[in-house]
Simulated assay, not measured.
Amino acid sequence: MRKILSVLLVSLLIFFFAACGSEKNISQESGEESTDTSEGQTNESENLENPDIPEEQGTKVLVAYFSATNTTQGIAEHIANGLSADIYEIVPEEPYTDADLNYNDNNSRTTIEMNDPNARPAISGSIENMEEYDVLFIGFPIWWGEAPRIVSTFMESYDFSGKTIVPFCTSGGSGMGSSAANLEQLTSGAQWLAGQRLNGSDSQDTVMEWVNGLGLDFGE
């Protein structure tokens, strides 16, 4: 009888330890599965936040201008505001005085400069990131039927390869004439669009009507 009870007791102990071991294995496997799922969710979150897709860059526009009497400046600001573009003023190292701008004086500074095709007045400052721009609007007044020589200085100071250049001018009555074509000869590798003479009194709506009619894609 004792032998039978001993055998039963041993059997119960073996069954008990086997059951405990089985529960421990299930708990470990469940923990491993939970860890794997957590890592998967983390990776998916990182992929959503940092998708391997390059951002599309919009057309970047610069409006550069020279304006001795602030007339051309107003037009340049209309374009820059209408396109949310960057703007740059071409500032001479030696500012022009009223006497310099006297076209009735054969000895005035501007008369001497415009009679010399090789004159290149110095510019104060420069554009450090010209390569970033896709489209350049270049504005200037008409002096003696041409763009001021300081605009020639500007056009010869940068590489405009691959860019689209749009000239515009202001004047007391004369048109753009050959001014844009002569500036184009100072550059290479750029696409020049037909220029436009604008009045200093033109509203932004009037100026932007011309800009929007150029057929350029300014979308971001």
Results as ranks from 00 to 15, higher is better:
residue 66 F to V: 00
residue 66 F to M: 00
residue 67 S to W: 00
residue 68 A to Q: 02
residue 68 A to D: 02
residue 69 T to L: 04
residue 69 T to V: 05
residue 69 T to A: 05
residue 71 T to H: 04
residue 72 T to C: 00
residue 72 T to Y: 01
residue 74 G to T: 05
residue 74 G to C: 02
residue 74 G to E: 03
residue 75 I to W: 00
residue 76 A to W: 01
residue 76 A to H: 02
residue 76 A to V: 05
residue 77 E to S: 04
residue 77 E to V: 07
residue 78 H to A: 11
residue 78 H to I: 07
residue 78 H to K: 12
residue 79 I to G: 02
residue 79 I to K: 01
residue 80 A to F: 07
residue 80 A to G: 09
residue 82 G to D: 08
residue 83 L to S: 05
residue 83 L to H: 09
residue 84 S to D: 15
residue 84 S to H: 11
residue 84 S to I: 10
residue 85 A to S: 09
residue 86 D to K: 03
residue 86 D to G: 03
residue 86 D to M: 07
residue 86 D to I: 04
residue 87 I to A: 03
residue 88 Y to K: 06
residue 89 E to D: 10
residue 89 E to M: 14
residue 89 E to C: 10
residue 90 I to D: 00
residue 90 I to V: 05
residue 90 I to L: 00
residue 91 V to Y: 01
residue 91 V to S: 03
residue 92 P to S: 06
residue 92 P to A: 05
residue 92 P to R: 03
residue 93 E to G: 05
residue 93 E to I: 06
residue 94 E to G: 03
residue 94 E to T: 12
residue 95 P to I: 06
residue 95 P to W: 08
residue 95 P to K: 06
residue 96 Y to T: 05
residue 96 Y to N: 06
residue 96 Y to Q: 06
residue 96 Y to E: 03
residue 97 T to L: 11
residue 97 T to N: 13
residue 98 D to Q: 14
residue 99 A to L: 11
residue 99 A to N: 14
residue 101 L to T: 07
residue 101 L to K: 04
residue 102 N to K: 13
residue 102 N to G: 11
residue 103 Y to N: 13
residue 103 Y to G: 14
residue 103 Y to R: 14
residue 103 Y to C: 11
residue 104 N to M: 14
residue 105 D to P: 12
residue 105 D to Q: 10
residue 106 N to Q: 15
residue 106 N to D: 15
residue 106 N to T: 14
residue 107 N to P: 12
residue 109 R to W: 05
residue 109 R to K: 15
residue 110 T to E: 09
residue 111 T to C: 12
residue 111 T to H: 11
residue 111 T to G: 09
residue 112 I to M: 12
residue 112 I to E: 12
residue 113 E to F: 01
residue 113 E to A: 03
residue 114 M to H: 08
residue 115 N to K: 08
residue 115 N to W: 04
residue 115 N to Q: 12
residue 115 N to R: 10
residue 116 D to I: 09
residue 117 P to T: 10
residue 117 P to I: 10
residue 118 N to V: 05
residue 118 N to C: 05
residue 120 R to L: 13
residue 122 A to H: 07
residue 122 A to K: 12
residue 123 I to E: 06
residue 123 I to Q: 06
residue 124 S to F: 13
residue 124 S to P: 06
residue 125 G to I: 13
residue 125 G to Q: 12
residue 126 S to E: 14
residue 126 S to N: 15
residue 126 S to T: 15
residue 127 I to V: 14
residue 127 I to T: 12
residue 128 E to R: 08
residue 129 N to S: 13
residue 131 E to T: 10
residue 131 E to G: 04
residue 132 E to D: 15
residue 132 E to T: 13
residue 133 Y to N: 08
residue 134 D to H: 12
residue 135 V to C: 08
residue 136 L to N: 06
residue 136 L to Q: 03
residue 136 L to M: 07
residue 139 G to C: 02
residue 140 F to Q: 00
residue 142 I to L: 01
residue 142 I to K: 00
residue 142 I to G: 00
residue 142 I to N: 00
residue 143 W to D: 01
residue 143 W to R: 02
residue 145 G to A: 07
residue 146 E to Q: 02
residue 147 A to H: 01
residue 148 P to R: 03
residue 148 P to G: 05
residue 148 P to E: 05
residue 148 P to N: 10
residue 149 R to A: 07
